[in-house]
Amino acid sequence: MSDLYQFHAHLELQHIFLEAHAERFHYLSTFFEGYYCYRYRLVTRQGKADWTQIFEHGVRSKAASQIADRKQLVREPRLPFAVLTGKLKELVRDDELNLESLQSLLDEHLEYTVLTREEFQKLKAAGLTERMPADYYRPASADYQNTDTRFEAVGIKLLA
C-alpha cells in the first residue's frame, strides 16, 4: 500500500513540475497540499488526499495544542506558499528544475503548522501570511532562512 502512496506523491510532484515548467504558478498550492498529504500518508480510507489530517500531523503552536475543536484552528504552511513558489521560480530561472531538485525543495521546505484563528489574525495583521520578515533573507541575520521567523515576529510559539 505504501507504494501506492509513493506513486500518488510522485504524480503530484510531476503536476508541480509541469505547472512550474510552464510558468503557471497560481494553482501550485493545491498540488503542494496533495503532495504533502500523499508523502505523509494523510489519506482517506479510499486513498484520496485528506487535508483535514494536516490538523493532526502539522506542527502545532503552543496555544493550538490546547484546543481540540478543529473549527477554532487554521492550517498554515510553515513557509508561505508565495515564498516556496519563489524558491521554485529560482530553480526555473536557473534552469535547475528537475524532479529531484523539486522533491528536495518540497521535502525540505513544505511543512504545515496548526495555529489558532487568533494567531492567524496576528500573522495577517503583520502582513506575514504571504511573505517572510526581511531578516529571513539577510545572510548576516540570526534569522537567516529560519522558517519560524514570521511566527516569532508576532509572538507565536511553535512546539518542537
Rank of each mutant, 00 (worst) to 15 (best):
M1W: 09
S2R: 15
D3K: 04
L4T: 07
L4D: 04
L4N: 04
Q6S: 05
Q6M: 03
H8G: 02
A9W: 00
H10A: 02
H10I: 00
L11G: 06
L11S: 06
L11Q: 11
E12P: 03
H15K: 10
I16E: 09
I16Q: 05
I16V: 14
L18D: 15
L18R: 14
H21D: 14
A22K: 13
A22L: 12
E23P: 01
F25M: 08
S29E: 12
S29D: 14
T30C: 05
Y35K: 00
Y36L: 01
Y40H: 15
R41W: 13
L42R: 06
R45S: 13
G47P: 02
G47T: 10
K48S: 10
K48Y: 10
Q53F: 00
Q53S: 01
E56C: 02
H57S: 00
G58H: 04
G58M: 06
V59C: 08
V59F: 01
S61P: 03
S61T: 05
S61G: 06
K62F: 11
A63Q: 13
A64Y: 04
Q66K: 07
Q66V: 09
A68Q: 13
D69F: 03
R70H: 07
K71W: 04
L73E: 08
V74K: 15
R75Y: 14
P77V: 14
P77C: 13
R78E: 10
P80F: 07
P80H: 14
P80L: 01
T85C: 08
G86D: 15
K87D: 08
E90W: 05
V92M: 06
D94W: 05
E96R: 15
E96D: 14
N98S: 08
L99Y: 01
E100F: 07
E100S: 13
E100P: 00
L102T: 02
Q103Y: 01
Q103P: 00
S104T: 12
L105F: 14
L105T: 01
D107M: 02
D107W: 07
L110C: 01
L110V: 01
E111H: 15
Y112V: 15
T113C: 10
T116D: 13
E118Q: 15
E119S: 05
F120C: 06
Q121P: 07
K122E: 05
L123D: 04
A125E: 15
G127S: 04
L128K: 13
L128E: 06
E130D: 15
R131K: 12
P133K: 02
D135A: 07
Y136D: 03
R138K: 11
P139M: 08
A140M: 07
S141M: 03
A142D: 12
D143I: 01
Y144T: 03
T147P: 11
T147K: 10
D148H: 10
T149N: 11
F151I: 09
A153G: 08
V154Q: 02
G155M: 07
G155I: 02
I156Q: 05
K157W: 06
L158K: 06
L159P: 03
L159H: 07
A160I: 05
A160W: 11
